[in-house]
Design a protein around this nucleic acid. Sequence first.
DNA 1: TTTTTCTGTTAAAAGGTTTTAGCATATGAG
DNA 2: CTCATATGCTAAAACCTTTTAACAGAAAAA
Lengths: 330, 330
Amino acid sequence: MTGPDDKRRTIRDVAKAAGVSISTASNALNGIGRTNAETREKVKRIADELGFRPNALARGLLTKRSHAIGMLTNDTYGRLTLPMAAGVSEILVDHGVSLFLCATNNDPRLAKLHLDALLDRQVDGIIFSATRIDLEPPPELLKLGIPVIYAFAQGPADSVSFHPDDAQGARLAVQHLQALGRSRILHITGEQNYLAARIRAEAYREASGACDVMFGEWSEEWGHTAIDAVYSQTGKKPDAIFCGSDEIARGVIGALRDRGISIPDEVAVVGFDNWEVISKQTRPPLTTLDMALKDIGRRAGLAILGLSRREKLEPGIVRHPCSLVRRASA
Amino acid sequence: MTGPDDKRRTIRDVAKAAGVSISTASNALNGIGRTNAETREKVKRIADELGFRPNALARGLLTKRSHAIGMLTNDTYGRLTLPMAAGVSEILVDHGVSLFLCATNNDPRLAKLHLDALLDRQVDGIIFSATRIDLEPPPELLKLGIPVIYAFAQGPADSVSFHPDDAQGARLAVQHLQALGRSRILHITGEQNYLAARIRAEAYREASGACDVMFGEWSEEWGHTAIDAVYSQTGKKPDAIFCGSDEIARGVIGALRDRGISIPDEVAVVGFDNWEVISKQTRPPLTTLDMALKDIGRRAGLAILGLSRREKLEPGIVRHPCSLVRRASA
DNA sequence: TTTTTCTGTTAAAAGGTTTTAGCATATGAG
DNA sequence: CTCATATGCTAAAACCTTTTAACAGAAAAA
């Protein structure tokens, strides 16, 4: 009962049905070469009727462009990577390019395995992305012969990277708090060995003139602990707190509430990430900075497309601006 | 200054360097046919030295197996999909199979676009996954001619799907609470139009003998609201609450704390999801059910591999057991 | 010695497309 | 009427691999 429809149509079928040669069919379908408008339309119509779709493998083999790119990430749970991947994918699909997702799980063996697979598949380029902007790529990536773009990860000097503009984001937070009339702004953030934490802290210092930075962990618990520490000491209390992440901010808010301190009246709180599952659900909802990860993904996608077409790109780190999402906490 | 190394080595280069024919080289590398052990080793050694890696496009063109599979998902922010994708990828990479990630963003046009691209690329199979088990796939997916596996999504009658075992999970929660001596167990869950919510509620009813189900939304806020409603009415109060998600549980815990009700002494709370960013950070940390999404991904990956090798699989829904993660809240 | 079997190797075809170079035919210029 | 040019189309090569069928040569059997 297997009809003739269970096999895929090739350009040969189209050519035969249209009564032309394979080359003419190809030319007509791709709109290149010298082709009579009439034949062109006819071929296209018949291809449509037959449901012909060109075999990407054959095409790629010949043209040396697979129209696929690989995304290598150390992330598996995707809070940062997946929005970026969505942005990348969104750009690529409109250009007929598909995306291989390779989660390395921080395992060098796996990274190598994925990388080899990508090369075997003749991908036109690779996007390397990570969970922190100062994570270095696997060394094999550096001398590859195909374009590489770094998104939320550290690339070598002559490469193109896309990062959120952490400094601008921090300034935005401080300025917003100052505009609310706050003058004693405390900064509670994550681990100091994260570059992003240091950049934000530095921008905070410059913008606020203050130096009250508490480095710790990227966790809600640290937010709690930090507040406990602040309020168990004597001395002036802050009237605003700029947190290095929404999770920290959630801990801070919880601890302030436990102490009966009203937010934002007594202390205003600003977070960082706009991770909505948290920022929308704190009480009060959190004013926070959005890193526009999807946009970063889009830009990385456009960049890799450009590179794969041999366009030249200015090397360096492109810092994509953060935006302040205003909710009730500040 | 472009040396001879900037071009990729082909099997032709290997054959020439080893002084054998292309076919011998191929046979030797793949370990098939009749080949002298000595020649085989020599060819392999030289291929290694030259850094030869076979072109997956050419191979796929000929063998009709691209060793790539596509994952179509309606999810972009990845709380459910990404752990599954990680599991899929983990299985596939060990079998030399790569994964195309296609985020449809719930847009049928995009779904069609991605699907066509996957077919053009001759993928060996497709995994359709979603953010809810009763989401139907795009109709084009149903009559495709290549294998499809449904993960956390609804497949047609004759297909193979992998779901978490929601009923078993709910029973586990109830049994755990009963073992703690709780007898008045309330179930606060999400929207009734979600199949998973109904399955869990039904299992809860059977296991507990009670009927106290409150359907609402999948949000922390709903957890709050629900508790407010319960405690503003007269009548017996529950001594345990089984929540349909960790987010709801977080709201429930927050509201209980606001009322000075001690957890777990007065009221024990169990969540569902084991989304660690929440479940580890509630106070007290949340006892909850883990759906083992990564395992579901692994099983889906194995299944699609099997199907792509024309193995037969029993159609139906495979329900993967949930496990109880015990923390302090119950 | 002749015939058969086995072994190691290879030429050639196949897979589906794009592209190059060339072939007729028709049109325009001289 | 001849020569150049433009037009529409096509045969064939190329991309890189796997696989089939066949070919020598050697060993075993008759």
